[in-house]
Design a protein around this nucleic acid. Structure first.
Lengths: 343, 343
DNA sequence: CCACCTAACTTGACCGTTCAATATAATAAC
DNA sequence: GTTATTATATTGAACGGTCAAGTTAGGTGG
């Protein structure tokens, strides 16, 4: 087995190039003060000896790590997270940063942040869909490290990048209303999720605005199973329902199954709309009407914003709100007029 | 905005505790040679001053980072990766390690590994479903850092943890044969994926063993769309097909859509079996027969194995092979004999 | 009472960089 | 030909720890 060889250092190169090691440092960092001839010679030597600067040593003297940390707080259902992670890793890397990922719960969030500080990360991305915390308290724990939440956190003046959930929900709800539905149920994400709160209240408010009585609502945790169970409860409630607004495509798939099992046809008997526009939504039967969130943009934007804050800590903190579109497919349709026949 | 305060160091604590800073170091590392009284005092001070050891400094002197790196090579379709990432992060963290994630392509793999070395990571996890490379070449790039591939790489003597793809494929294929199917098509992952190769050849060999002619096969890239397209091609091939073995649940969902569109009922006209046993497979219509891979075990095992290698670099490299189970649901059923007129 | 031992600390060196201050040589200015 | 200027390179210190070797004080044995 290969043995871990001792790495060549800046001094090894310096000795071979017959200069002081500090000169080599200048070359590494592309700083002026080195003649072209010498620079070339050093560069060649670095290549030959396959020298790599020791990041730990660099970190120690610069107090920077060129690393970001993504802290995931209290996320139980993995689903979408995977792709977002990839997006952020990519975006960070594109700017020469590494991305460390850590998971934590609300209680140990302070530890997680301390850990990040100890690791000298240059910035923190936080994905914490349930975290409701005062700005000051959160900033206090960050020890001055720039932070961007990749979440919709209305009311917080901390930097965040998120989709306007109220807008999205209104879009979907009004779509159903426009189709003539009057009895609209909902399966929003659990209320402890910030998105869940907004999806639920907006759904309700929009209905009320239109003079409609909100239908039954049962929450889910983004899993297909929770959507399945919630849909069952809606059906079992006995209340008239001609449309269901489901808080994710994933849960909508569960709801579709429940409706199928109970003999209800979509969209003939019940219209269903989802959120997220995942690939799945084009492959259900019928294909799902859904809200298209451009998660890739959100991920990338969060990283970019964080990098801006790192570059210039004086940047005024602000919030970046993204809008979404409605994608109408086959799971929603105009309410069949009373005693309409079917094929 | 909070300003990044200068961190307290070991020397600050030492000064306050009226000992040398080296003594504080002993306390940090739980080493003997410090009286209980002093230790307590130092610990209390560390707490009060909320002191955190500077990881960079530790790394610099110990040449270790307490960090693992997951290198993802040439993975285009994210899907499952998300959860695996989480599993590994969790497993690593449970042993006091952080997990850095990086993505790369085959060409820049050497760079990625050099980067890992520069970061002083203690071990490397590699997820590289398409990477075929000589053991020596790969080890050579690793610079002596322990490496575990989280993949099925038969033929490689490097440490890896993977599911026996031949076993899994045989399980699924023989299930279809046992049901009486004689015309079995396949949608394996692309042949450039190691799994794809094994799924394809095993499928073919098992059929031949049983004296059956392999049906049409078209590969996919794990996306629903690729499954959809492959299924269309199978249908369009005009060859008789009563069952399709699809290389992932995801692609199977695509295949189901294609069959649906062409008026073929599952399982009445065509049986479909998938791989992965994702949550989705219980929510399709009909529910999917599939191969259950315990990915969580694989992820965890890969991390544990790597940690063992780090602890004791003399550990004999070996391969850990995991087996899978068949989960029979509603998408496969015995070939209806009256209709087909063959056995 | 002295030699010896051990527990509890301290000393000094080092890890591989960066950074600010300084030296040197060559060139330009007068 | 002296002086100022610049480009290039060097020196020394610092970053915050770890580690091996040395010192000291107090207790023990004979």
């Amino acid at each position: 087995m290969t043995v871990r060889k001792k790495h060549t250092t800046i001094r090894d190169i310096a000795r071979l190039a017959d200069v002081s090691y500090q000169t080599v440092s200048l070359v590494i960092n592309d700083k002026p003060g080195v003649s072209d001839k010498t620079r070339k010679r050093i560069l060649r030597l670095m290549d030959e000896m396959d020298y790599r600067p020791n990041r730990a040593a660099q970190m120690l003297s610069t107090n920077r790590s060129n690393t970001l940390e993504l802290i995931v707080v209290d996320v139980t259902y993995g689903g979408r997270l995977a792709d977002s992670t990839k997006n952020m890793v990519r975006a960070a890397r594109a700017s020469g940063y590494g991305l460390l990922i850590s998971e934590t719960t609300l209680e140990s969030l302070p530890d997680a942040l301390e850990g990040a500080a100890a690791r000298l990360v240059d910035g923190i991305l936080m994905y914490a869909p349930r975290l409701r915390i005062g700005d000051q308290e959160l900033l206090g724990m960050c020890d001055g490290i720039p932070l961007v939440r990749r979440d919709y956190v209305p009311g917080s003046k901390i930097a965040w990048v998120g989709f306007d959930q109220a807008y999205a929900t209104r879009l979907a709800t009004e779509h159903l209303i426009d189709l003539g539905h009057r009895h609209i149920a909902a399966i929003p994400p659990n209320a402890d999720m910030i998105n869940g709160y907004w999806r639920y209240t907006t759904w309700k408010n929009v209905l009320l605005e239109h003079g409609l009585e909100p239908g039954p609502a049962f929450t889910g945790d983004y899993s297909m199973q929770s959507g399945y169970e919630a849909a069952q409860q809606i059906i079992d409630s006995g209340q008239p329902v001609s449309a269901i607004l489901v808080g994710s495509d994933n849960m909508a798939v569960g709801a579709l199954k429940a409706l199928r099992e109970r003999g209800l046809r979509v969209p003939d008997d019940v219209s269903v709309a989802g959120f997220d526009n995942t690939e799945l939504s084009s492959y259900t039967d019928p294909q799902l009407t859904t809200i298209d969130f451009k998660f890739a943009s959100q991920d990338e934007m969060a990283v970019k914003y964080l990098l801006e804050l790192i570059e210039d800590p004086q940047t005024e903190l602000h919030q970046r709100v993204l809008m979404s579109d409605l994608v109408v497919r086959d799971s929603t349709r105009p309410l069949a007029s009373p005693n309409s026949g079917e094929r």
